[in-house]
């Protein structure tokens, strides 16, 4: 077994009496893409929020490379290597496409408090930002304001921000939702490319069966906030737990209907 990059131990959050994430203990390894599935309201996005720090944990721990990050702020976790793309597009709408990505590159370089130089004069920040734009094939839109982009392009940019951050743990929350058939492959190719690097862990919340089948090395199933199944994609899809989690329906069929 390779050394786990990310570990969650008994990770739990309660909202009033409702247990949204229920004692999830799970490890994520480098070079492995884990698909996280489950019906709506199973706690997938909440589990993500606990790992990336948007919601404080009620119980349990999150460890990154052996360091406990449970009490760290979102920004601190980001600097240590947790990166997240959001389910609902979450960008800087009145800034240009290039500026959105440049801000990420700048954050990584720790240059945010540079107060007296011109932002545009930093070739070492603008250059890498352009490279990312090339990888997602959006160089033509570099100077466009984000709010004027199509929905699909905004989704692509959402993923691009995460690629620019290049964290140790990539967390994608339905990255291709709302994308057209031509647009989705660009993003999926990028994710497949990340897998080949072998030094990053990738977590993917996804409903599309074909995406899971081509990309996932492993599937975990959440049901009512708890870990219901964990293992090889083919085995998990056939297991009883999954059948039950989806109320008797086949996973594939259930997911197709979501």
């Amino acid at each position: 077994m390779p050394h786990p990059i990310l570990e969650t131990t008994d990770l739990t959050v309660r909202f009033g009496g409702h247990v949204a994430v229920d004692h999830i203990t799970c490890n994520f390894n480098a070079g492995e893409l884990t698909a996280i599935v489950g019906p709506n309201g199973a706690g997938k996005t909440t589990y993500f929020n606990l790992i990336s720090g948007q919601i404080p944990v009620s119980e349990g721990r999150v460890k990154l490379n052996g360091t406990d990050i449970t009490r760290m702020s979102v920004a601190q976790r980001t600097h240590r290597g947790i990166g997240r793309a959001f389910q609902l597009t979450n960008l800087f709408p009145n800034l240009s496409v290039l500026e959105n990505i440049r801000l990420v590159v700048q954050s990584k370089a720790g240059r945010g408090f540079n107060i007296l130089s011109m932002a545009d004069s930093h070739a070492e920040l603008t250059g890498p930002a352009y490279e990312i734009l090339e990888r997602i094939r959006m160089t033509d839109q570099a100077d466009q304001v984000v709010s004027e982009l199509s929905h699909g392009d905004q989704r692509k940019l959402e993923v691009a921000l995460l690629i620019a951050l290049d964290p140790l743990v990539y967390m994608f929350d339905e990255p291709t939702a709302g994308m057209s058939v031509d647009e989705a492959p660009v993003v999926l190719d990028l994710i497949a490319e990340l897998k080949t690097r072998k030094d990053r862990a990738i977590l993917l919340v996804e409903h599309k069966m074909d995406v899971i089948r081509t990309l996932a090395d492993r599937i975990i199933v959440l049901h009512n906030g708890a870990l219901a199944a964990d293992g090889d994609p083919a085995e998990v899809m056939a297991s009883d737990v999954v059948q039950e989690a989806y109320m008797g329906r086949d996973l594939e069929e259930a997911l197709a209907n979501v």
């Binding site: 990336s52 948007q54 702020s73 979102v74 920004a75 601190q76 980001t78 600097h79 997240r84 959001f86 979450n90 960008l91 800087f92 709408p93 009145n94 800034l95 500026e99 440049r102 801000l103 990420v104 700048q106 954050s107 990584k108 240059r111 945010g112 408090f113 540079n114 107060i115 007296l116 130089s117 011109m118 932002a119 545009d120 930093h122 920040l125 921000l161 951050l165």
Partner: peptide, 27 residues
């Protein structure tokens, strides 16, 4: 100069979307 510096861009990012600014690593 300040508003067009890297710092100024971070400020604009925070004005636009403080949630995401934090998520890409800005305190």
């Amino acid at each position: 100069r300040v508003v067009n510096s890297p710092f100024g861009r971070v400020l604009q990012a925070i004005r636009e979307n403080d949630f995401r600014a934090e998520a890409i690593g800005y305190r």
